[in-house]
Nucleic acid binder design. Structure first.
Lengths: 204, 204
DNA sequence: GCAGTTCTTAACCGCTCGGTTCAAAAATTT
DNA sequence: AAATTTTTGAACCGAGCGGTTAAGAACTGC
């Protein structure tokens, strides 16, 4: 029964353009005009299809989490804790230094700190990052059960350190530091975790 | 010969208020009204005394670097590379989780990513962070000369890892993660660097 | 108490912001 | 081809942006 004029844009494709804009400029640094220009979508269509700026941003984050952070979920499926860590760190470095995408990580660049009226954006991003950390902690808890990690290892601390390093790499990548340099840093982090996980653990 | 109506604010004190606003909300998330309100300075005075928003921000960064990052310079004066690392990491964790200041680090929160017209702000901050990294690398080069670090240690990689971890801690702190949790992460990083620096070094 | 100087208050500037309205245009259905 | 449905482009909101201007208030020196 419906007919109507067809869209001049693909909803998913336009969303991916929006991902890149928010990724590069952050939530507050991105204007509706920036979005309509990059997405090839006119203003009324943007509002009818995606909602508003805030709604669009939420969809952007969801799309980013599903596609651009798939490497994190993949890393979690490695058979041992050490392999999880190694793969996550290396793939993370690769993900924040892609040639055809902005440098860094949308989850951080998107809105590390915002104006008072947009604090919810910053809090939402922070909460989702910490949720990711918890998944790693749970994976390390499993590893302890499986005697893959020493019984006295601290899964929360390990996960936290892992996320701290990945966030640091994202910040560094956003500053333009090249992939090879970040891989050196990741290698040091790996050594740390290797030592923490294999030995009977003598935490400071 | 001068006279004139006296100011109702102290220039330095008002600047410190501005530091906190930019720290909490970032460059683009801060409006002139936010600043005048927090600083207790009216608009024309703000412009005549500090210049404009961009000029004020530069003064804010300078004030922050001199006062709130003094711990980094202090750490560099420790006698050994390991002590430099330990003190920097611990004091950095403390600095990003102060009770009477915003959580995190102004150098990152201030503008990790900006709109196209304010890219210079993000680049300026990124460059100053990398300049700090270079100072640590130089310190480690000195340590190698002094046989305080093994000759095959990579001073640039060590400094990079150190800054990566501190940036990660800043991002984590901005998300509200408490000091004790960050200290656990810092302890793991210390272990890493201790291993890298004392052993003959077997980098991956 | 008057001249000169400096700061404050409040209004104002052009501009862009996020968001909406509306008629014209382009497609589908019958 | 007529009727219907949907998107398009452009004009339009009120509000807030960064920044400026002009008049008056508070001080100093004489």
């Amino acid at each position: 029964m419906p007919g109507g004029r067809p869209r001049t844009f693909d909803e998913e494709e336009a969303l991916e353009r929006a991902v890149e804009v928010f990724w590069r400029q952050g939530y507050e640094g991105t204007s509706i005009t920036d979005l309509t220009t990059a997405m090839g979508v006119n203003k009324p269509s943007l509002y009818s299809v995606y909602g508003g700026k805030a709604d669009l941003f939420r969809r952007v984050i969801a799309h980013y989490a599903e596609h651009d952070m798939a490497y994190a979920r993949a890393a979690l499926e490695e058979p041992t804790a050490l392999l999880v860590v190694q793969r996550f760190l290396r793939d993370n470095v690769a993900a924040v230094t892609l040639d055809d995408k902005p440098n860094g990580c949308l989850s951080i660049q998107g809105g590390l700190s915002c104006s008072t009226e947009n604090q919810d954006v910053a809090q939402f991003l922070a909460a989702s990052r910490l949720a990711g950390e918890k998944v790693f902690a749970d994976r390390f808890r499993l590893a302890i059960e499986q005697n893959d990690l020493p019984a006295d290892a601290d899964p929360d601390a390990l996960a936290r350190f892992l996320m701290v390093v990945s966030e640091g790499h994202a910040v560094h990548a956003a500053a333009g530091v090249p992939r090879e340099a970040l891989l050196q840093s990741a290698a040091i982090a790996e050594q740390a975790l290797k030592a923490m996980t294999s030995q009977p653990a003598s935490r400071a």
